[in-house]
């Protein structure tokens, strides 16, 4: 019995280690090649012949062709702003659907659910010209509005989370004379740290990932590119040979803040998503 237990344990360890290696290999090579000194994108050997810091240096100093620092800053600004706005939207909409009862609530929830299935980039042309009508195209503000606008529909995880907070709390507060607004700000939100963190995380990451919306909105405005859009320019036919290793370095630099954020917030992420996505 004990032997069998140990055997399963060893097997599981072996399997987990193997999987961990598989999962880390691409990341490992990404990092290794960001230190490669030789140019080129398709090399015929696994490890670089010489290592260098130069790709990282080029990323931040060689700004004439690729203004990476500027794009990095743009993305950061957009992320922070859209993360604030989306979190606000998501919390407001999900709280209303979860705790408040009003006419048309079910219909609205169902409509939201269906609208969320709409493939976003089909909307791009229309969104672009709507933004243009109000004079916002090619600006970072436009990106913020677009990202948070599409986030508003992803309310269901947060709604599920709010559903798990006991109604008795609200009732007690109402008896004490608290308004619904007070309940939302003073009682529910402080109890909802996991879902707030989850929402913040998800909306913070979006601008670092998206490149299609950004390219449609920014078009020729190089100054306002985001990192995703900028890194893409590095691997076009003309540039990939000289810039592939710089691209890798850029990727690593982009990944670092998100990775750190994720590692520290992992606990809340799990709580938020399990509290929200699956219950209710």
């Amino acid at each position: 019995m004990r032997l069998r237990k140990n055997l399963t344990r060893i097997l599981i360890y072996a399997l987990l280690t193997a999987l961990a290696v598989i999962w880390l290999i691409p990341i490992f090579f990404l990092i290794v090649h960001s230190f490669r000194a030789e140019p080129g994108a398709a090399i015929r050997y696994l490890f670089p012949k010489t290592y260098t810091w130069n790709n990282y240096v080029r990323l931040f100093t060689d700004t004439e062709l690729f203004n990476f620092p500027r794009w990095y800053l743009n993305t950061l600004v957009v992320s922070v702003a859209s993360c604030f706005l989306s979190t606000l939207y998501v919390l407001m909409i999900s709280y209303a659907f979860s705790r408040l009862r009003f006419r048309g609530r079910n219909a609205m929830m169902r409509a939201g659910l269906i609208l969320n299935m709409f493939p976003g980039f089909m909307a791009m042309i229309a969104v672009y010209f709507i933004l243009k009508a109000v004079g916002l195209t090619q600006s970072l503000l436009a990106l913020v509005l677009v990202y948070s606008g599409s986030a508003a529909l992803t309310y269901y995880v947060a709604k599920g989370f709010f559903d798990t907070i006991p109604l008795a709390l609200d009732e007690a507060a109402t008896i004490d004379g608290a308004s619904k607004s007070t309940i939302f700000w003073r009682i529910t939100l402080p109890l909802s740290k996991p879902i707030v963190v989850y929402t913040v995380l998800m909306s913070f990451m979006a601008p670092w990932m998206d490149f299609i919306f950004a390219s449609v909105i920014m078009k020729d405005n190089y100054e306002n590119y985001t990192v995703a859009l900028g890194l893409f320019q590095m691997i076009t036919r003309e540039n990939i040979y000289d810039y592939f290793t710089v691209f890798c370095a850029g990727a690593v630099v982009v990944a670092i803040p998100i990775a750190l954020l994720f590692l520290f917030m992992q606990k809340y992420y799990v709580e938020g998503v399990t509290g929200g996505a699956v219950k209710g």
Partner: peptide, 12 residues
């Protein structure tokens, strides 16, 4: 280890 992959932007 597994969560690290989430942190790297998908397009990268």
């Amino acid at each position: 280890v597994f969560v690290t992959t989430i942190a790297i932007p998908q397009f990268v």
